[in-house]
Design a binder for these strands. Structure first.
Lengths: 224, 224, 224, 224
DNA sequence: GATGAATGAGTGTTCATTCAT
DNA sequence: AATGAATGAACACTCATTCAT
């Protein structure tokens, strides 16, 4: 009897989708209003469930926060690890692709707001900060270091400390996220183009890292 | 009656010092525990006054925040403006001095925590964020741009957009502050040396900005 | 298909046993953790059924409470009524047997915790209290009064109000239950032996009730 | 200026009286509705203050409970200790006076409900139970034991274990409190006279404890 | 000017009960 | 009959701000 089948399917489907819907609602509200300022009830209302339902899926507001981080940030590293493993081409290209990819998947999306959030609330929720550092920051830096080391090993970059060098890129990404989600919009008209900054910054670094100011890099840079 | 004069004098002196003591207590506590997590009563206790007294000097907790920003960050720009106006030497040296000076006066001090604070609370206190941007961010960027433009004009740096380039430095400074006051200490052992990063980062940028990879810059860089 | 018959049988048997299993689980948990502090889900988990199933058998948590009382306390009075009807011997012996029997069957068992529970929750669940009073307290007191009256009628005890006298025994039993399930264990080392108190208390009362301080009672008492 | 004096006095007096007013309101409501079922806001409303004010005086609802116990039960022991120290007369008279005094000051008053409350909530608030046992139960039992021992030492009572004997009295008092605040009123018409029970119980015990059935005790008892 | 007692709005979490399946 | 996902009412405690003194 179709009349009976449909409800079953719907309820089942709802149950399957609940976590995702809650995660999405939480991401939106956390980024919009901040973690502390978002009431759990708001999350459930936006997800279309009752307040108690959230606690069926996540033990606490803090656990929900962690789940949002894992779902919207942690997941990407699986893909990136594969992509970089299979990448053929210069390390400079690899970095250009990586930065572009990060911007598309995280920097320019709502997920980018999470980094700002975690840093903002790190004092009040040290557990979350530790979780973020372990699940996001650490993998990200390791990935970058591996790429930079590849450039050094292949003679594309000068001999340098890959860990410190990686921070020159990370700092720009973190800054961008902080800016977009903190100061941007405060003084209309004084903002800058994030992607342009990111690209310029990368080229400057590539130039600074280059063993010899290779023709290709310099030309590409000066085109801009 | 002398016995009465002395207390008056002491009280007068106290009255004069009240704002400064409150500002110092507030800075310490805000950076230590965060803005939201710091109760105004804690500030007054540390400053040695009663709770109500704070509101005689500042209309609200938010106004106190602004006053702390002005007192501990805004003041520095007067000195820097003078120092750079009188600076003689290469622009690279000027930047090295500026970054070092910033690290000494702000980055490594309690005042550095304010930037993290403002960005963290920008969603909840947009007024404070706007105030910070106008009183601190804007002057800072203008100063940096002026310096970079001097390097371009004098042929030390290649032709480039000084505004975008300035962000490459600012991003490192902001990142450092965020790190020190957010993630640092989360994963003991995985931390880095802030000043070393800052110096390396600057040298990489100088190398990337250089019109020609000048001998002096390169050598200095490779010494490290 | 035999394969189908067996599960049906098992399910049937389960169905028969459900109430008893729920009642047992409820008794254990109520006494262990208190009525309010026990979640119905815990009861169902211990009984091996789902949460909803409990409500098929009992309309509410309160009804479950009443059912537990009837099953674990109310049932005993049928046996006692018969035993005392057939008892031959002095009334003092009858009381000694009765108190001992009560201690064995109720006082020292989990069921003893129910009296504490009922009294504790009487304000929140007056229906339960009334039910307990009608099904347990009343029959108990009537039974005791009949025994005491037998002692008076047979000249073993002095003339006295059997109802008031019965309270002297009941009070000790109730106190014992309250103590065991409330204060016991609070201050380790300060506890007392319940059965010893009960026996001593009874002998003191028998001595106080005796028409003349009979030789037998006194001797027995002084043995201790 | 009288106009200025009066408000000062009133505010000062209010401040002095706040704790007492809160304690009284809490006692009434706790006994009326139970501890858990009483919302702190109800207490403050009855005391005529705002919700937050209560927390200026007591750190938590539980601390308030302890304070109520100390104020309404613990305080009495100071007076009793003195009274019994100065008492002249037979130990039987001392006990009659003590029980009567207890009934007047605690048993028949609201304070009597606290014992029931503590025992009821002991599972949920073990700290409170321990506090009660240390501040009320222990002193009470020690006091009784001392009195009984006096009777034994002076040859008024037979040789016996004063600690166990004291429980025969305590059990009646505890039972009375439990009854009055739990079951009383459940089945109108079936109640008993508490004071009469208490007196009869005491006389029965005195008779049971007496070294020889002394004329005075027996006559007094048989008068009833 | 200085005090500090008083205020009261705001929120994460639990759990008995329901009901669609 | 049995399930278990969903509901939503209920509640202690905090803290910026006020104002009578």
């Amino acid at each position: 009897m179709p009349a009976l089948v449909k409800p079953t399917v719907r309820r089942e489907r709802r149950k399957q989708e609940r976590p995702g819907e809650l995660l999405q609602a939480a991401l939106e509200l956390f980024v919009e209003k901040g973690f502390a300022a978002t009431r759990v009830e708001e999350v459930t209302v936006r997800a279309g469930v009752s307040k108690g339902t959230l606690f069926l899926y996540y033990d606490s507001k803090e656990e929900l926060f962690k789940a949002v981080i894992q779902a919207h940030l942690g997941e990407h590293f699986i893909a990136w690890d594969q992509e970089f493993g299979a990448f053929e081409g210069s390390t400079a290209e690899m970095l250009r692709y990586g930065i572009g990819s990060w911007w598309e998947r995280i920097g320019s999306t709502l997920a980018g707001g999470l980094t700002k959030l975690v840093m903002s609330e790190s004092k009040n929720f040290p557990d979350v900060a530790a979780y973020y550092r372990a699940q996001v920051m650490q993998p990200g830096q390791v990935l970058l270091q591996r790429i930079l080391q590849r450039g050094i090993d292949q003679g594309e970059f000068r001999a340098m400390d890959a860990q410190t060098a990686s921070l020159s890129l990370i700092s720009a990404m973190v800054f961008l996220l902080m800016w977009r989600h903190s100061m941007s919009g405060c003084t209309p008209g004084a903002d800058f183009d994030p992607k342009a900054f990111l690209d310029t910054h990368l080229e400057t670094l590539l130039c600074g890292w280059a063993r010899t100011a290779s023709k290709r890099t310099k030309e590409r840079h000066e085109d801009r």
